[in-house]
């Protein structure tokens, strides 16, 4: 398995972040949630590794917990 990489890994973080937020411009909360769901599925498939995905789900459930 590839361990979940939580170290900085995105080039141009500000640019990525702006793009992510801009994708939701003008959307209703429901449409925005739907977009997020599609995005999660696309990214999850790209990662593929079940153990890495499980780690990511766990990390997302405990945002303030390190380790």
């Amino acid at each position: 398995m590839t361990p979940l990489n939580t170290a900085p890994n995105i080039d141009d973080p500000d640019g990525f972040y702006a793009e992510l937020v801009a994708a939701h411009d003008g959307l209703t909360p429901d449409d925005s949630a739907a977009l997020n769901a599609r995005l999660i599925l696309l990214l999850a498939n790209h990662i593929g590794d079940r153990a890495t995905l499980r780690d990511a789900i766990e990390a997302a459930k405990r945002p303030n917990f390190s380790g």
Partner: peptide
């Protein structure tokens, strides 16, 4: 929400 997202993607994206 996830069910609908899967269906949204399934037509164009084989992975879904």
């Amino acid at each position: 929400m996830f069910r609908d997202a899967v269906l949204d993607l399934a037509q164009d994206h084989p992975f879904a």
